[in-house]
Design a protein around this nucleic acid. Structure first.
Length: 382
RNA sequence: GGUCGCGUGGUGUAGCCCGGUUAACACGUCUCCCUGUCACGGAGAAGACCACGGGUUCAAAUCCCGUCGCGACCG
């Protein structure tokens, strides 16, 4: 895989001045909670940040509570970083899947979460609410290119995404001006590249977003081809047309090997539901290694899936993984976890989620180490 | 000793009274799927000589007789 860029940025800086080494993986706390965990649990997995969803919090929580707490961090007592997603993905999954959930025009998205409730959501409103959430990275509202789109429809989603990106940038600057936020203490602003599988559209979208000006660009849309393979071609096309000083963000990416592949292309910010959802669906990630030091992410198959509640583990006194230092692996046996899953106790979900998050935070540590070493900068190692 | 009831995949059951296509269901087991979370979810597979022996019948898990095992009650 050709390496595009990885040296333009060294850190993800948070509001409170913390510099997070790149890459970072932020699991999805859609409704301001990582299902089955609390904020202390998340910290213990060495997860540096989370992603919350603007649409869900706008719909279910609202401004009044957020304003009272001064942002989502204080509300959930979370000391790490936070990215707020714009709600663009929810347009795709809710409105496009079923028209009864609403409609999309150039002006706004009209959500109808219930028969009686109607939400008019504009790019400006998304930015405004995200600024109230007081997150570290604000994401512009975009229109998701449906994977089944032909080139004409894909082009339309790019046009609307660009239109909304312009409005979002303008409104973002207005709010920053009003709040007295300068380049150093304002959140990052992320644009999103659409265009489906059409590389020419991806190039055009990337270039026009760069003209508008952002701190980073996200690989938007559905990154998986109809054959079920990760679309590295699109990832690479976006990376090649993005300035080095920009963040490259793989939205919803992904499987561990896909994150390694994207990181090699220059992507350094990731979020995904997989580690948390998979944990709840009895799929744990384990490194094919006997200790943390032995983990080799350059190995072809560097990890495997582990399904806990199998008969062969009912009396297994081994930990789930020896290449892990999470609460589950440090303290409990496979047999105990199998038991917890079998009796359907919620602690099984919690321990499995903790484990998978530690797997991902270890992956980030290993990637940081790899790139520090490969770039020959010893000051970054350690 | 007597009376009654029950023996069906790994487990628990349905079907039996009124015989008839590949014996059904739940759980368990195994495999696969989940990618800016309406999701502790979804798809599929394997697995039973219907306790055993005999009889009636074109045809028996199903009706009849016997054997064994388990349970309850009565002596």
């Amino acid at each position: 895989m050709e390496k595009i860029n990885n040296n333009g940025l060294k850190f993800f800086k948070t509001k409170n001045g913390t510099k997070l080494p790149l890459p970072v993986f932020f699991p999805d706390a859609t409704r301001a909670v990582l299902k089955t965990l609390d904020s202390a649990d998340i910290e213990d997995t060495k997860t540096p940040g989370i992603l919350v969803n603007t649409y869900h919090l706008y719909n279910e929580l609202g401004s009044r509570v957020i304003k009272k707490f001064g942002g989502i961090c204080k509300f959930m007592s979370w000391n790490g970083a936070v990215i707020s997603d714009s709600g663009g993905f929810q347009i795709m999954t809710l409105v496009k899947a079923n028209k009864r959930f609403g409609a999309i025009t150039d002006e706004a998205v009209v959500f109808r979460p219930t028969a009686k409730k109607k939400i008019i959501f504009t790019p400006e409103e998304s930015i405004r609410f995200q600024m109230e959430l007081n997150t570290d990275m604000v994401v512009v509202l975009d229109e998701f290119t449906d994977p089944k789109s032909d080139e004409k429809k894909a082009c339309q989603s790019v046009e609307r995404t660009i239109l909304w990106a312009k409005r979002s940038k303008k409104y973002f600057e207005e709010i920053c001006g009003k709040k007295g936020l300068d380049e150093k203490n304002r959140p990052y602003l992320l644009g999103i590249v659409q265009g489906g599988e059409f590389l020419n559209l991806r190039v055009e979208c990337t270039q026009r977003l760069v003209e508008i000006g952002f701190d980073g660009l996200g690989y938007g849309g559905w990154p998986i081809t109809s054959q079920g393979k990760f679309n590295y071609e699109v990832a690479q096309t976006i990376a090649k047309n993005t300035p080095e000083k920009y963040f490259l963000y793989g939205l919803g990416v992904g499987k561990p090997d896909e994150i390694v592949g994207c990181n090699d292309l220059g992507y350094s910010v990731f979020d995904c539901v997989l580690p948390t959802r998979d944990a709840r669906h009895r799929r744990l990630y384990v490194y094919n290694a006997d200790s943390i030091d032995d983990i080799n992410i350059r190995q072809a198959k560097f990890y495997s899936y582990f399904t806990p509640d199998k008969e062969r583990y009912y009396s297994d006194s081994e930990p789930v993984s020896r290449a892990c230092d999470c609460l589950l692996c440090a303290r409990y046996s496979r047999a105990y976890l199998a038991h917890l899953f079998r009796i359907q106790d919620v602690s099984a979900l919690r321990l499995a989620t903790i484990h998978n998050l530690r797997f991902y935070s270890l992956l980030m540590e290993k990637l940081f180490y790899c790139h520090s070493r490969e770039s020959g900068n010893p000051s970054l190692i350690g």
